[in-house]
Simulated assay, not measured.
Amino acid sequence: MASIVAAALLTMPATASAQRAGTLVSAEPAADAPAGMRAWRVRYRTMSDRNQPIEVTGMVIAPERPSSGPGRVIAWTHGMIGVAQKCAPSSGGLNFTMIPSLADVIGRGYTVVAPDYPGLGSAMVHPGLVGVSTGRSVLDAVRAARDIRGANAGLRFAVWGESQGGHAALWTGQLARSYAPELDLVGIAAIVPPTDLARNMKEGSDPRARALLMAYTGTSWSRHYGIPMTAFGSRATQNVMTRLADNYCIETHKKPKLGTILGIVTVQRAIRNLDLGKQQPWGRLMRENSVSPAAVPSPLLVATGSKDVIVAPAVVRDFAQRACRNGKAVRYLSIPGGEHATVARTDARTTLDWIDARFAGQRAPSDCGRI
């Protein structure tokens, strides 16, 4: 009975602080955690981009035998898997396979904080690629993890993300000092990140991926910002886009159903000549949610793959160059033959070694002279 009471107290914050951003609401132990790990599916408070308190979800994964003292934290920010509530990585065991080299991460003694982002796992619209909303949810997940007994989460953290998560990682850095000044961000690793959203929407060379991204972002932003979807064409096309967004979560090891494929082809045809960045208010919102290379703190690790057909390597390179011109220390990786879905995994050890060095206080390397 005493243990039950203690667990209840752990997951029920005091009334006075119940609405505070970063407050842990609940932490449910995950029975399916891999060997050598402990994990919790969490609910916690954050603040939306409209400064409204909201409750969101995520997962925290820690070594089964944590080290003494406040532990080092890696915030893992996942790539685009959909915009429907059911697509949340924490709802099943997806985080255990999605996070690159998780066994190595835990073996190095890190506690992993993996937010779902607002609207994935929580009853609200998912504001996909909306920087402020996503970045705040990451920072508040790091805060909330500190209240889980056994997670051993400290104030020092690095953020590591791929694709949409690379965008989230950079926005987390952009917001960290003003939004969560008590946290100590030691480094940002952004893998295949969309940074200039208008260019990313236009220059991705895989038309099917571009169509699906348009369906996800168009539906998400239309609902979040209250924008009509007329820029995408007929009512029939708009309906196909919303059905894709509401029903399809990307599963990288499963072939989409025929209906999904046909829906993507329909959208692909409808938007083949669309430059969304020139359509207002879409263009303005894309600029607002793009990443500022001047505002993101260093040190940075930025990686792309030469065969990425979803986030154009040229856009990633341009961002790294602009960050260098703004005085940032940038470790830049361009992986020969690297694809959008592979770079985070094939080069996970390089990324983790770089993160280790940031926690160790070593001087950050910079490739700005050769980019």
Rank of each mutant, 00 (worst) to 15 (best):
D104N: 14
L352N: 05
S366V: 09
Q174W: 09
S334R: 13
A344G: 04
L285H: 06
R223M: 05
L262A: 03
P118Q: 08
R272S: 12
P115E: 01
A323M: 08
W282M: 04
G165W: 08
Y332N: 10
V240S: 12
E28L: 13
M98W: 07
T266M: 10
Q321H: 12
K202Y: 07
S48E: 08
S306D: 14
E55M: 10
A295H: 09
T351V: 15
I106L: 06
P299K: 10
R149V: 14
G82A: 06
D140I: 01
N200F: 06
T350M: 07
A16V: 08
A21Y: 00
A88V: 04
Q279S: 12
R235F: 10
G338H: 13
H253E: 13
G107C: 06
S334K: 12
V113I: 09
L10I: 06
T260G: 06
L258Q: 03
I227K: 13
A329E: 15
P228H: 12
M47Q: 13
M47W: 06
A190E: 00
F96D: 03
E64R: 15
T97I: 10
S122R: 07
H253N: 13
H253K: 13
I74R: 10
D308V: 09
T242S: 14
Y179V: 13
F359V: 05
R156P: 14
A30T: 08
S101P: 00
S205L: 02
R208A: 15
R331D: 15
T23S: 15
L213C: 12
